[in-house]
C-alpha cells in the first residue's frame, strides 16, 4: 500500500491548515456503550476523563483563540462530571456549540437537567444513529441501544429539537454497521427522514454519513474477522484528490481529555499530536497558524475516500 503522504505528493497536494475556526473537545474515553466501530476504544472501563482544571483551560483557550465552533465529543460526554461546567464556559464565547451524543446516555432520566440546559443554550445535538433497524444499530452499538436511541430522539423532539424554525438543531450521524463504506449522504438523509417519520414520528435537521476509521476497536474487529485488508484497500482505492481541500482537519483542532492538542480526533486515537509534539492547551496562545502542516498517516485514507469526510 502506498503511504498516504506519498499519495498526496503524487497528486501534487499538501495538507496544510486554513484559518482554524473549530475546537473539538474530547472530554474523555469513558462511555456507557462499547461500540464495535469506535476508533478510540471508548467504554465503561476507561478512566481517561477531562478534569475541571483542564475544562477551565479549554474555556480560556476558546476565548483566547476566538473559535466560532466548539464541538464536544467523547466517549459519552454526558459521563464527564464537568460537562455542565464546560457548556456554561463555552456557550457565551463560541456562537456554535455542538454536543456529540450517543443518545443512550443523554436519554437517561438523570440527564433531564442537561437536556434542558442544552436547549436553553441552543447547543446543537449531533446524535449517532447508524441505521433505522434494530438489527444493524444494535450490532454496532449494543443490544437494546436502538430502542433507547429512539426514546431519546422522541424526548429531544418534545423539547423542540429537530423541528424546523425551533432554533434547536438535531443532526444525525450515520456510521456503517460493518466493513463497508457509508451510503451517499443525500440519499441516506432522505431515507432516514422518511423511515423515522413514518415509523416513529421523529424529526431531525441534517444527517451526516461518515466512514469508519480503521483504528482502535474497529481495527481489531476488522483484523479478527479477516476484513482488514479488503476494507483498507477500499479506502485506498477510493482516494479522491478533490476531497483533500474540504477536509475538516484543515479548519479544526482537537484537544484531548488531558489537554494535549491534535489535528483531529483520529490522530488523537493514533497518538499523532499537533506539530509532532505534546502541546498543552494552556500553552497555546492562539489557534494553529494557517499554512501549518497537518500530521498524516494511513488512517487519513478514510477521510479522502469517495466524497470525503468534512
Amino acid at each position: 500500500m502506498e503511504p498516504f503522504a506519498q499519495t498526496l505528493a503524487r497528486h501534487d497536494l499538501t495538507l496544510t491548515r486554513e484559518p482554524t475556526d473549530t475546537l473539538q473537545v474530547n472530554v474523555g474515553f469513558l462511555c456507557n456503550q462499547v461500540c464495535k466501530h469506535c476508533h478510540l476504544g471508548a467504554g465503561p472501563g476507561r478512566s481517561e476523563v477531562m478534569d475541571a482544571a483542564t475544562v477551565d483551560q479549554v474555556v480560556a483557550y476558546v476565548a483566547r483563540a476566538g473559535f466560532t465552533t466548539v464541538d464536544i465529543t467523547g466517549g459519552a460526554p454526558e459521563m464527564n462530571p464537568h460537562l455542565v461546567r464546560l457548556i456554561h464556559g463555552v456557550t457565551p464565547r463560541a456562537p456554535r456549540v455542538m454536543l456529540r451524543a450517543n443518545l443512550t446516555a443523554l436519554g437517561q432520566d438523570q440527564h433531564q437537567p442537561l437536556r434542558e440546559l442544552l436547549a436553553e443554550r441552543r447547543v446543537v445535538v449531533v446524535a449517532s444513529l447508524p441505521a433505522t433497524t434494530a438489527f444493524q444499530a444494535d450490532a454496532q452499538r449494543g443490544q437494546g441501544v436502538f430502542e433507547q436511541s429512539l426514546a431519546t430522539l422522541e424526548r429531544l423532539n418534545r423539547l423542540g429539537y429537530g423541528h424546523p424554525g425551533s432554533g434547536l438543531e438535531l443532526d444525525l450521524v450515520v456510521n456503517p454497521a460493518g466493513a463497508f463504506l457509508p451510503p451517499p449522504q443525500a440519499a441516506a438523509e432522505k431515507k432516514f427522514r422518511a423511515d423515522l417519520k413514518r415509523e416513529w414520528g421523529l424529526v431531525f435537521n441534517q444527517l451526516f454519513t461518515f466512514a469508519n476509521v480503521p483504528l482502535g476497536r474497529f481495527r481489531r474487529w476488522l483484523e479478527k474477522t479477516g476484513n482488514y485488508q479488503a476494507y483498507r484497500d477500499k479506502l485506498v482505492n477510493g482516494f479522491n484528490p478533490c476531497a483533500v481541500e474540504g477536509l475538516m482537519c484543515r479548519r479544526q483542532v482537537s484537544v484531548a481529555w488531558d489537554g494535549i492538542l491534535y489535528d483531529c480526533d483520529f490522530n488523537l486515537a493514533a497518538g499523532l499530536p499537533l506539530q509532532g509534539r505534546a502541546i498543552h492547551v494552556s500553552h497555546m496562545a492562539a489557534a494553529p497558524e494557517p499554512g501549518s502542516p497537518i500530521a498524516v498517516a494511513d488512517h487519513c485514507y478514510t477521510c479522502t475516500a469517495g466524497d470525503g469526510f468534512t
Binding site: T133, P176, L181
Partner: peptide, 12 residues
C-alpha cells in the same frame, strides 16, 4: 451485497 449496504439498504 456490499453495494446494497453501501447504498443504504438494510439486511431485511
Amino acid at each position: 451485497a456490499q453495494a446494497c449496504l453501501e447504498k443504504g439498504s438494510n439486511p431485511a
